[in-house]
Design a protein around this nucleic acid. Sequence first.
DNA 1: ACATTGTTTGCTTGTGCATGCATAATCTGG
DNA 2: CCAGATTATGCATGCACAAGCAAACAATGT
Lengths: 140, 140
Amino acid sequence: MDAKLWEQVVVLHARVEHDLGRTLQRRHGIGLSEYRALSRLAVAPDGELRMQELADSIGLNQSSVSRLAVRLETDGLTRRDLCPKDRRGVYSVITDEGRTRLTEAGVTYAEALTTAMAKAAADPHLADVAAALGAIPVAV
Amino acid sequence: MDAKLWEQVVVLHARVEHDLGRTLQRRHGIGLSEYRALSRLAVAPDGELRMQELADSIGLNQSSVSRLAVRLETDGLTRRDLCPKDRRGVYSVITDEGRTRLTEAGVTYAEALTTAMAKAAADPHLADVAAALGAIPVAV
DNA sequence: ACATTGTTTGCTTGTGCATGCATAATCTGG
DNA sequence: CCAGATTATGCATGCACAAGCAAACAATGT
């Protein structure tokens, strides 16, 4: 990986995430991390994940996710559940309200992502990276 | 741009930046933003940029860069210079010490980037994104 | 005068790190 | 085997800090 290229990825990332975060916050009252946590929980079996699993899946560290879980619980979007097999473990479980919010926000997210990428692609410094990312076949 | 793909980019970005930042901090005592600012200044004409230009080039806020400039000055890596044409403006100018530090850190950076990308590519969830990024021809 | 542009400053917040605490898992000598 | 001690794991919390936002501030231009 070329360093110059990575710098472009970083700037692209910053701009897109910034736009995404603002839009999500304004229209649905949740931040990017909250959205990501919900989206991971929603597709997990029984809608629940251990803290560390959640952290890995969204690229945050464990302590950040601990606090993130508190915010989500406060909003009623998730709840905590004890792990029956390992009493050290805690599950974060998405609630019905969480799924509803996620569905609503998902539409906004996809739309804002498209917009943000288009905006970034308009910048000549980022055009080629944006185009290359757009050309990657969707992975499962 | 597909949303799932973007999520992978985000996680990849988080992991690589994290590794990069830690390595840079440990070996050279500067953070990622500091490194980026220096690298942009180094290639700018006369080694100087306006605050806003610097902010745009590294994907940060104006105010964040203002404080970043303070940190760099404190370390003697840059200094401030007044803009003769518009006295509202301020230049951030890289010092000799700044160039030296950048050169040293640049080696670490490139090496850590390669390592971090390889590590990320080893994760099956990120392998295809990492590969696709690696396949992008280097842009100027 | 007033609007505009460029930078800085006050405040808030999310994040990482180091640490602490509780619970498992493993090792040890009998 | 097994009881007790040691080490490892999972999560929560105190703290420090960089980043964003909004407002203040400074200098230009109209």
